[in-house]
């Protein structure tokens, strides 16, 4: 299994402003990958480079084994839904399907038609008059019906209300179930993505702070509460992600490769959001992050 995306020391700068710096990343195929990070972490830049819309200023990137350079061979294999899901406001829904059919040799007209019917969109309606959710669905339909091997979505649900958000992700997941497409989704909120991602990448200031399959990440991390002690007093093999102390009690978020060893503490699993926030806080702290390594690469 070759990686769907492989980036090495990838960087992009606009004049003096660094939008992405020294990003090294390897993403396995067959997953719905959540790319999570605060605003300005470089998510959009990374995704735009991945679909060939931007050229990196430094480093290398390969997507599906090829350098993304805007050539048709690559365009046909990668679907991209940009932030705020742009569509042509004065073109109708049907026009958008014609657009897709005319501009993509691998267009699946049946699939597109079925999706539009399922969504209950009126073919003659102008895209400019669709609700945010419907517009997002239309953009998704365009991206899905060209039958890409990899679907990249940049903050697709950020501007949607909760119902539209759930609806969008439901349709996205159905497409994944039907076609087995690999997906990369970005968001600054893990709560947007936690139901749908089975692989998670946490990106803070261009650096990967955490990467791995969600199930494993959840199994590996615990919050342990015990009588006050130093980090060094914890058994070896536990990586401390965060530590908080009161005068009597210490709370650690720890990562263990295997089972959590028994100890004189109460341990519980973290929910994904807490887990991600712990890493985000850690990433934001000065001088942090060097110790983490992507676990995805280990398998």
């Amino acid at each position: 299994m070759t990686a769907i995306l492989q980036a090495h020391a990838l960087g992009k700068s606009y004049g003096r402003r660094q939008a992405l710096a020294d990003c090294t990343l390897e993403l396995p195929p067959g997953h719905v990958i959540g790319l999570v990070g605060p605003n300005g972490a470089g998510k959009t830049t990374l995704l735009k480079i991945a679909c060939g819309m931007l050229a990196p200023t430094t480093g290398q990137i390969e997507v599906l084994g090829e350098q993304p350079d805007g050539a048709t061979s690559q365009l046909a294999r990668v679907g991209y839904v940009a932030q705020d899901t742009p569509t042509y406001a004065n073109l109708s829904v049907a026009d958008h399907l014609t657009l897709g059919a005319r501009m993509n040799p691998g267009w699946d007209a049946k699939l597109a038609q079925a999706r539009i019917e399922q969504l209950g969109l009126q073919p003659r309606q102008k895209a400019g008059r669709l609700s945010g959710g419907q517009r997002a669905q239309l953009a998704l339909t365009l991206a899905v019906a060209k039958r890409p091997e990899l679907l990249i979505l940049d903050e697709p649900v950020a501007s949607l209300d909760p119902l539209a958000r759930r609806d969008f992700l439901r349709h996205l997941m159905e497409s994944v179930a039907e076609q087995g497409t690999s997906v990369i989704l970005s968001s600054h909120l893990i709560s947007d993505l936690e139901r749908v991602c089975d692989y998670l990448v946490v990106l803070v200031s261009s650096r990967v702070r955490l990467a791995g399959e969600v199930d494993e990440l959840l199994a590996q991390h615990h919050r342990i509460v015990c009588a006050r002690r130093q980090e060094s007093d914890l058994p070896a093999g536990l990586i401390v992600i965060s530590a908080e102390h009161t005068d009597r009690q210490s709370t650690f978020v720890v990562r263990s490769e295997g089972e959590l060893p028994a100890g004189d503490w109460s341990a519980e699993h973290l929910e994904l959001e807490d887990l991600v926030l712990t890493y985000l806080e850690r990433g934001a702290a000065p001088g942090a992050g060097a110790a983490t390594r992507p676990t995805g690469a280990a398998r």
Partner: peptide, 18 residues
């Protein structure tokens, strides 16, 4: 089926398969 679960819960099909 996996697809039915996915359509209902809006979750990742890999999760259901797993």
């Amino acid at each position: 089926t996996v697809k039915e679960v996915v359509a209902k819960l809006a979750i990742n099909p890999n999760t259901v398969s797993k």
